[in-house]
Design a protein around this nucleic acid. Structure first.
Length: 189
DNA sequence: AGCGGGATTTTCT
DNA sequence: GAAAATCCCGCTT
């Protein structure tokens, strides 16, 4: 069987840039929420900050699978964060979704978050709360309902801002954080 | 507007 | 036993 996400079977930083501007479609509370991905970070097996750095474990197993699956992890005792698995099978790489911009179903997002505007979805754990993503969705294939990844044409390089990743202590020098220059949901908006 | 701490559990050392 | 790919609140300026 051929992958539905061949475009993501590349290095984590390449896949990260490729995911900017793509859409997440979530069916929740009987309605549809559509979001554009505007900020991401890449993680791979050669990377001391990555969960996959020390090899496959029960938690990180999904990262070593095929591209286009969802990797959800639980952190700081109260938060979930979601990633799109990238690279080829066996590689242990993924892209953390750090911020999205709601296009449709904004009212659902804001009521689930008790926040409005960019504060509703400008952080990895905020997105999971807004879209109702939890550990039960770990390993979900993003071609299927109720959470689909819809690929879009690549964003032009001049519209992508590249910076070091944030919230990590190791490998802080890698410029593996990417966001859309023209989004109002990103840091310098 | 900016800083500091608390929440709370999984994971690895 | 401690750190962790975070968020939010409350206090100080």
């Amino acid at each position: 069987m051929r992958s539905d996400f061949l475009e993501l079977e590349v290095s984590a930083p390449e896949a990260a840039k490729r995911l900017l501007g793509c859409l997440l479609e979530r069916e929740i509370e009987g309605r549809r929420v559509l979001c554009k991905i505007v900020e991401v970070e890449a993680y791979d097996q050669t990377d001391a900050a990555s969960h996959s750095y020390r090899g496959k474990t029960p938690r990180t197993e999904i990262m070593f699978g095929r591209a286009g699956y969802l990797y959800v992890y639980f952190t700081y005792g109260m938060h979930y964060c979601c990633n799109v698995v990238t690279g080829v099978e066996g590689e242990g790489s993924a892209v953390l979704i750090r911020a999205v911009e709601p296009i449709e179903g904004v009212d659902i997002v804001e009521s689930r978050r008790h926040k409005s505007g960019k504060e509703a979805t400008n952080g990895p754990a905020k997105i999971c709360q807004a879209l109702g993503i939890n550990r039960e969705m770990n390993g979900h294939y993003l071609k299927n309902a109720p959470l689909k990844l819809i690929m879009k044409p690549p964003v032009k390089p001049q519209n992508i801002v590249v910076t070091p990743r944030i919230g990590i202590k190791k490998a802080i020098e890698k410029p593996w954080r990417f966001y859309l220059r023209d989004s109002t949901y990103t840091p310098d908006a």
